[in-house]
Simulated scan of single mutants.
Amino acid sequence: MNDEALWATVVGQDAAVSLLRGALVAPVHAFLFVGPPGAGRAEAARAFAGALFAGSGSEGEPDAEEAVRHRRLAVAGQHPDLIRVEPDGRALLVADTERITVEGWRSPVEARRKVIVVDRFDTAEPEAAASLLKTVEEPPATTIFVLLAEEVPAEHVTIASRCFRVDFPPLADEVVAAAMVADGMDAERAAVLAEAAAGSIDRARLLAEDPALHGRRNAW
């Protein structure tokens, strides 16, 4: 997998991809991806991690073959230095942030850096947010944090201000429809699902499993 194929996994978010590719030159310690589920935040986190792991090909960085492997594993979510943390319940708890801190201080296994993706950051309880703030403010040198959130609540503005923010707006209907066609769906049904999915490829794929959707739409 080359660099272009890596970023092609993030569909319909050209502005976000441009920001992230530019950030690779001198990446900061923490990023905040804000947008609805299914708009490409998770895919962008994996692509960004893959690009970081692959490096620029300069001296001391992975060779071409190693870079391909880093990208491929990151996109698949299988790279040992790409850690994803998601709360088990309704909120991100102190136990979750303690795990994030421990993982952050562990050395990378294969790459020169480690990327920790924290999903549903916006659900963090006050104590968890305070703990995460300390970790983000005093990060290990080899760890980069990527926080995913649907929005930034007022109580999380401080930690958000410590991050490089990248917005992921809802996808255009035609982008969602094209993704469904790429999955093997006929264009007419893909257009119906895209309209109902409100800018989310994930929601469109869930709706695709609902056999009653087409009938309900006709009833409208």
Rank of each mutant, 00 (worst) to 15 (best):
D202M: 07
G60A: 12
V25E: 10
T158L: 10
L207P: 08
A187E: 15
L193Q: 05
G215V: 09
E98N: 13
V75Q: 02
A191S: 12
V192K: 09
D63S: 09
P126T: 14
V192R: 14
V17Q: 04
V94K: 00
E188L: 09
T97I: 11
R71F: 02
A26L: 07
V157T: 15
A149L: 12
A26F: 03
V68M: 06
T9K: 10
W220H: 13
A187L: 05
A16F: 11
R41N: 01
K134V: 04
P170I: 11
G22E: 00
R69S: 09
A54D: 08
A198L: 09
D96V: 00
D173E: 15
A182D: 13
A91G: 05
A23T: 01
R21H: 03
C163M: 09
P36M: 08
A128Q: 06
A42D: 11
L32I: 07
A160K: 14
R165H: 12
F145H: 03
A49T: 11
F121S: 02
R113Q: 02
E195W: 04
G38Q: 02
G104Y: 05
E65Y: 00
R71G: 03
V11Y: 01
F33A: 06
E110P: 01
A74I: 08
T101E: 07
V115I: 10
A64F: 05
R165N: 12
G215I: 08
A16M: 06
R120W: 00
V192C: 07
I201T: 13
H70I: 02
E125V: 14
L132N: 11
S18Y: 02
A154L: 07
P36K: 00
L73T: 01
S56F: 12
A39R: 02
V94P: 05
A190Y: 04
D14V: 15
L147G: 04
G55I: 10
L171W: 12
P108I: 09
A177R: 10
Q13M: 14
A45T: 07
S200M: 00
A54E: 00
D167M: 09
R90G: 07
R69E: 12
M180S: 06
P139S: 07
F121W: 11
M180G: 02
R21K: 15
S58P: 02
R84T: 14
R203T: 10
L207Q: 08
